[in-house]
Nucleic acid binder design. Structure first.
Lengths: 132, 132
DNA sequence: ATAACGTCTGTTATAATATAACATATTTGA
DNA sequence: TCAAATATGTTATATTATAACAGACGTTAT
């Protein structure tokens, strides 16, 4: 049985940084930010990231190779993720839309494949950037 | 105005390889495959890939950093992509489902952001792999 | 308690993915 | 035909991610 609640030292450090950030963080940017805390190597970051993703604490934005904190308390969300991404300022917003999530979770491939998980990324220009 | 129909030499070479492949191809695997045709550097591959993506001839599978040929004649599809990915055999299938596409194209963010494009990736185990 | 196990850590090295920058050639269109 | 846009070739380098090995730390079953 995996430990569901407690985070290891490195996991906590990495999660803290990601949660404090305003936007998505890249692995090496996390690394530079935690070097004062004694973490020195990419491996340490990637290991923590993997575990945090597994726990649903963070998500990877695949199109950006960057990581954001999950702001939904629902654990299931890590099997059903959707994001809104601004192509101008790089802002990422997690979309929690029950209808959307249900619609996609119920979607089945014509060829009979049963889906366990999906990731959806929307792109556009956010309100803020449109004004400029 | 961009040339919509004609492909340059390198673009054609890269597209040919991707179209012939059974599954998604990675950039460096494409490179190794076309070295006999005189293409020597990653740049040449990535440049061709970028253009082909822009034309909607191929798509990038973000979660795999790999590329597949578009098998839909509809150009619009490059602004609305959906894929089915087997986590066991790595097979990727492009999903062309009008309802799904319409549903997602019509989806609007609560915060007023207008989406121009989306990419959806479903994960599971394909029929073939389930048998094994 | 202690041995066995699973998990986490630290570390060095290297693989895999992608872009920068510069020089030149080719195509296209006004 | 000349300017602009697009494509090419090339070298170097940046960025992202994993392999492989060694050791530490906590649980828990005996």
């Amino acid at each position: 049985m995996a430990r569901a609640q407690t985070l290891s030292r490195n996991q906590q450090i990495v999660l803290d940084i990601i949660e404090k950030a305003k936007g998505p963080l890249k692995a090496y940017s996390i690394l530079f930010n935690v070097q004062k805390k004694g973490i020195k190597a990419p491996q340490q970051i990637y290991r923590a990231l993997d575990k945090l993703i597994g726990m649903g604490k963070i998500h990877k934005i695949e199109s950006k190779n960057a990581f954001v904190a999950c702001r939904s308390s629902d654990c299931e969300i890590s099997k059903a993720t959707a994001f809104s991404i601004c192509e101008s300022c790089e802002m990422v917003d997690e979309i929690s839309d029950t209808k959307l999530s249900k619609y996609l979770s119920g979607f089945n491939h014509k060829k009979g494949m049963k889906f366990k998980r999906f990731n959806l990324e929307f792109f556009g220009i956010c309100k803020k950037c449109k004004k400029d």
